[in-house]
Simulated scan of single mutants.
Amino acid sequence: MRSRRRRKPEGVRAWTAMAARAGYGARGFVYLSVGLLMLASASGLGGQTLGSQGVAPWLASQPFGRLWLILLGLGLWAFVAWRVLQAVWDADHEGRDWRGAATRLGQAVSGLVYALLAAGVFELLDEVGPRMAAEDIAENQAKAAILLGLPFGDIVLMLVGLVVLGVGVGNIVTGLRVDFGEALSCSEHWRRRLCLLARVGYTVRGAAYLPLGVFVLIAGWHARAAEVRSFGSSLEAIRQQPGGGWLVGVTALGFIAFGAFAFIEARFRRIRPPKTLSLG
């Protein structure tokens, strides 16, 4: 009886670690795909498709495309579960001081973002089509219109824009300051080289969020939902500027670096599931 009790927690921890690694792999697949699609678009090979919404149509057009989408959605939900363990049960042992609390808050926000992305993947199973980008913008603008219709809706929309900007700045700071090698179980020789991917990926990803945050902030300031854009259309707006193709290309390389490092985390990250799921 005692041996069974010991095996059960170990089994749960093993499955938790496996789910976390699957989640990191799914995140890597998303960003690597987005980066490649953006790179193709910036070089004139991929049409006008930019941003994370381009992944679903591309996947759907591949053999067993719907199966790919289902597996991607399940992987993202696994990553969301891992973020919950990190944020609520401190799986990474960040502690309860202000730095640890800030890190866990960031993990919670990240979990929420990936939960929305995972839910969107399953929603897209019945909606994938050539007009998806336009529908994505229209949906965001409809949500913005609802916010603007509420009391102080313009202020709420501006706060949303500030949150997006904050996420972008937070990623840039993370990329510049965090020692990513601490969480990798590989030699010091490889840690130094692999961490460069993380620094480039996080910094560029943070910079890519800034245009979207500015669009939402301006929309709230002017109280016009029509100014709200999707992430892909924000990148498209950048591409239309002088030298914008180069900027989008650099962003694409940063996303590829971020996705590649997520695959590295799926293999080498130290996964330390909490021994108990107690809130105390």
Rank of each mutant, 00 (worst) to 15 (best):
Y114H: 13
Y114D: 01
Y114G: 00
Y114F: 05
A115T: 11
L116E: 07
L116P: 00
L117A: 06
A118L: 00
A119M: 10
G120P: 06
G120A: 11
G120L: 09
V121A: 00
L125V: 05
L125N: 01
L125M: 09
D126F: 04
D126G: 12
E127M: 12
V128D: 04
V128Y: 05
G129H: 07
M132I: 15
A133Y: 11
A134V: 13
A134H: 13
E135Y: 09
D136H: 14
A138G: 06
A138C: 04
A138Q: 10
N140P: 01
A142R: 15
A144T: 03
P151E: 08
F152W: 11
G153M: 11
D154T: 08
I155K: 14
V156D: 06
L157M: 12
L157A: 09
M158Y: 05
G161Q: 03
L162I: 05
L162K: 06
V163C: 08
V164E: 02
L165G: 12
L165F: 08
V167R: 02
G168P: 00
I172Y: 05
T174Y: 11
G175W: 04
L176K: 13
R177F: 08
D179A: 12
F180N: 01
G181S: 07
G181P: 01
E182R: 15
A183V: 15
L184H: 02
L184A: 10
C186V: 15
S187M: 03
E188G: 09
H189G: 13
L194G: 08
L194C: 07
L196I: 15
L196M: 12
A198C: 04
R199D: 09
V200F: 04
G201D: 08
G201K: 03
Y202L: 06
Y202K: 11
T203Q: 05
T203H: 04
R205N: 03
R205E: 08
R205Y: 12
G206W: 03
A207G: 02
A207W: 04
A208I: 05
A208T: 11
L210G: 03
